[in-house]
Amino acid sequence: MNPIELSSQLRKPTGEAGKEIGKALNESNRGLYELAFEMMSLQKDDRVLEIGFGSGMHFPEYFRLQPRLTVTGIDFSKDMCEEAKAHNAELIASNKLSLHCEETSALPFSDNRFDLAVALNVIYFLDPPGVHLKEIHRVLKPGGMLLIGYRPRHTVEHLPFTKQNFILYEPDELKVLLSKNGLEATKEITRSHEKTSVDGVEVTVTDACLLVKKG
């Protein structure tokens, strides 16, 4: 797969190639998810929204941290929605998890609904970002939190597949963007490690998680 095709698949995994990308992302994003789950402070009966959940293999981890949650996922890839539904049939049947195949530019949820929104390796694809961030702000409860996982520009801009479809950010740029949309940074953690990227190259990456609060 050439860099342009890979970039397109990372944005929206589609077809059999997209399913393979989804599997590769489960491994590639493992460190970022581990960091994100460390940062979460989940309370019983919290309502959690995850944006861009991919194949959804990680959903059970939410309930290991806090069994009494309601988790909602939204992803605009039909194929990833189908994969995630197959992987999480039991959670869906028990009404702990619901999955929606929709765009984040017009979230199908009422105002002030969620305690926490989670978006890991998604911020690059929100274009224009303000439209999507305003929607996330709308559905968060007053004082609700958004947890963004991403890789800063300087750590990934050399990778060929980031040249298309990606809007990359440095930490200060991202904080300014979020502040303009009513979301103020409260905590940030970064962690660097060696990994194999989705195109099979050994790289050193920096995982960053930023926790922001609805003002």
Results as ranks from 00 to 15, higher is better:
139 V>Q: 07
140 L>T: 01
65 L>H: 14
149 G>L: 09
64 R>P: 01
118 V>D: 00
122 V>N: 00
126 L>T: 04
91 L>G: 01
135 E>K: 01
100 H>C: 02
81 C>P: 00
81 C>M: 10
120 L>D: 05
114 F>L: 01
96 K>A: 15
142 P>C: 02
55 S>D: 15
100 H>A: 03
90 E>Q: 10
78 K>V: 13
91 L>R: 13
143 G>V: 01
64 R>I: 04
110 S>K: 15
86 A>P: 01
71 V>C: 07
127 D>P: 01
142 P>S: 02
109 F>I: 12
108 P>H: 07
94 S>D: 14
82 E>I: 05
92 I>F: 10
131 V>K: 14
54 G>H: 11
92 I>K: 10
59 F>V: 11
112 N>W: 11
132 H>L: 01
144 G>H: 08
104 T>D: 14
73 G>V: 00
118 V>L: 07
83 E>W: 11
96 K>M: 15
133 L>P: 02
81 C>V: 06
57 M>H: 14
112 N>I: 10
137 H>N: 08
55 S>K: 08
139 V>T: 11
133 L>Y: 05
60 P>H: 09
123 I>G: 00
132 H>E: 08
126 L>S: 04
95 N>F: 13
145 M>F: 13
119 A>G: 04
104 T>G: 14
114 F>P: 02
134 K>I: 02
84 A>W: 07
112 N>H: 15
148 I>T: 02
120 L>Q: 08
74 I>N: 06
66 Q>I: 05
74 I>P: 06
71 V>Q: 03
142 P>E: 08
54 G>S: 08
111 D>S: 04
137 H>A: 07
143 G>N: 04
68 R>D: 08
113 R>S: 06
54 G>R: 12
